[in-house]
Simulated assay, not measured.
Amino acid sequence: MIIRPATAADLPAIDHVFRTSFCATFAHLYDPADLDSFLAGLTPEAWAAEFADPAYAFEVGEVEGEVVGYAKLGPNKLPHVAGGDVIELKQFYLLKSAHGSGLAGRLMEWVMAEARQRGAGRIALSVFSENWRAQAFYKRYGFVDRGPVTFMVGNHPDEDQVWELVL
């Protein structure tokens, strides 16, 4: 298992991890039209602009040459988080086959190191209010719940929680 900076050639693999993980965890919550609408805006082509923007950073985790997880940092756009020296953990996804492998911890170590390297004193993220596994993971790293935020999946409003970590 290795983690490394993503390349533009990794965007299709990142898309696969995102879609597979998101759908396995959440698809049952949504009308197919809402899910399709949400997923249509999250594609390798859509992420290419972020990938080219130095304000964003992508890191992938591989097992035997296959991307099985990734993390993406970028400018904070979440409410309940004061401006200033904050960076947002935009996405953090692993395939189920990578759960329990230690990859999530290695990616989170990268997230914190990269945030510090970029001058951030805080990391913010949002997580689905009923995603207990993810919430427990973030709590282990010292993230604190800052309150609810609406996260739209198509026309379906979900309640997420904004979390913040002081580095």
Rank of each mutant, 00 (worst) to 15 (best):
E109N: 10
T7H: 04
W163A: 10
H28W: 15
Q91Y: 04
K139V: 11
V111S: 08
E159D: 13
K77N: 11
W163R: 08
F92C: 06
S126G: 10
A6D: 00
A27K: 06
D15P: 00
H80Y: 04
Q117D: 15
V153G: 02
L73C: 03
R118T: 08
Y56M: 04
F22W: 14
L95A: 08
G84D: 04
E45I: 06
A24Y: 01
V127Y: 04
E109H: 14
P54T: 14
A124Y: 10
A24S: 10
V67N: 04
G61T: 02
D85N: 13
G74V: 06
R118I: 10
W110A: 04
Q161W: 15
F151G: 11
A120C: 14
E130S: 12
I14V: 11
V127T: 10
Y141Q: 12
V63R: 09
T43N: 02
E109C: 07
G41R: 01
R19C: 04
T25G: 00
A113M: 02
L39Y: 01
I2Q: 11
A6S: 06
N131H: 10
V153K: 05
S97P: 09
E164Y: 01
D85A: 14
W110K: 05
Y138T: 09
A24C: 05
A8T: 09
V68M: 08
R118Q: 13
A49R: 13
C23I: 05
R106D: 04
W163M: 15
S129W: 12
G102V: 10
W110Y: 08
Q91W: 03
Y56I: 02
D15Y: 02
N76Y: 03
H80M: 10
A48F: 06
T25L: 07
G65H: 00
G83N: 05
A136E: 14
L35P: 07
L167W: 01
F22P: 06
K90Q: 10
G142R: 14
A134R: 13
G119A: 11
I2D: 08
F26H: 07
E62Y: 00
W110R: 09
H80T: 13
Y93M: 08
L39N: 02
T43S: 12
L107V: 15
L94V: 09
E88H: 03
F128D: 15
T43V: 02
L103A: 05
V17A: 05
G121T: 11
A40R: 09
V127R: 05
T150M: 12
I14T: 01
S21A: 15
A134G: 14
V17G: 03
P44G: 00
F18K: 00
G41I: 01
N76V: 08
E50P: 02
K77W: 03
I123V: 15
V166C: 09
V166E: 06
L167D: 00
A40D: 09
D158H: 01
M108E: 13
R118N: 07
I14E: 01
A48T: 09
Y138K: 15
V153C: 05
I123T: 09
P32E: 15
R118K: 15
V63Q: 12
D31N: 14
D160C: 05
K96F: 09
E66V: 13
F137R: 10
A40H: 07
F143L: 14
A8F: 05
A52Y: 06
V149N: 11
Y30W: 13
V144K: 04
V67A: 08
A57Y: 00
G83S: 06
R133F: 05
A27L: 07
R122M: 07
